[in-house]
Amino acid sequence: MVDATTLIRATLLGLQLGMTLALVAAGLTLIFGMLDVINFAHGALYMLGAYFGVTVATELGSFWLALVIAPLLVAVVGGAIEILSLRPLYGRNPLYHILLTFGIAIMTQGLVVEIWGAQSLRIQVPDALSGTLTYGSLSYPVYWMFVLAVSTVLIGAIWLAISRSDIGIIIRASAHDTEMVDALGFDVSRVFTGVVVFGAALAGVAGVLLGASRSVNPGMGFGVIIQAFVIVVIGGLGSFRGAVFSALLIGLVTAYGALIAPSLTDLFMFALMAVVLIIKPSGLFGATEAA
């Protein structure tokens, strides 16, 4: 029943899902790692990326400009959220942050309905990327390959930056021991803002990329945040490596799951999370001492 073509197509979808989810989950896990904030508003930032993308693409008539401008706008929103609302609450009970970011997510959803309306929208795929690649009996949209390529390159670049660059060292160090980094003379509050802005921009990129292959609607933020949380929990809270690895895992499970039992794909995802939590409560790549 399941032939090679089907398998290849499912694998491509799984990788694409994984890489785009990794863009969202990376920000989520970095923000948690450094700020100890569980950012429920991260899905809303992803959604804003898609909506900004729709507006820029329609008004300026260019998908490419949308792909650059929309994430920058989302980054500004992310920065504003960190400076105006998260910052005054650092050091308090984490529940404050959960309530705050949850509230921001709901407000953003309401604003989106007010501004753009409740009906589904979509970013039009540019002509250069429309069409289908055909190889034998396998056909796959050019744009979907583009999404896979762009998100893979981005994730690869971030990986290098975090593991090799000076900023990456500070980020990893801050995630490990904020006070020590502060004591060594680095302005940790600027690093905090930077991480939120960067995480927001990544979510925005994912929003624009997927906004051209899926419908853009006010419910999309909550849909993605659940998957992103599962990914972060499986990968280990705060671990970038873990987020990328488990995003790919969840992407492939979702894609293959749809071939086996479409109605159970969510169940597969949560079952996987349960199994990981039972065997390794801190997640696959989580630091045990952080738990």
Partner: peptide, 19 residues
């Protein structure tokens, strides 16, 4: 081909439809 309500990606189902 039945697809769960609220699916984002139809690729696996489109494959079945085509086949």
């Amino acid at each position: 081909v039945g697809v769960p309500l609220g699916s984002d990606d139809y690729s696996p189902y489109l494959g079945e439809i085509e086949d």
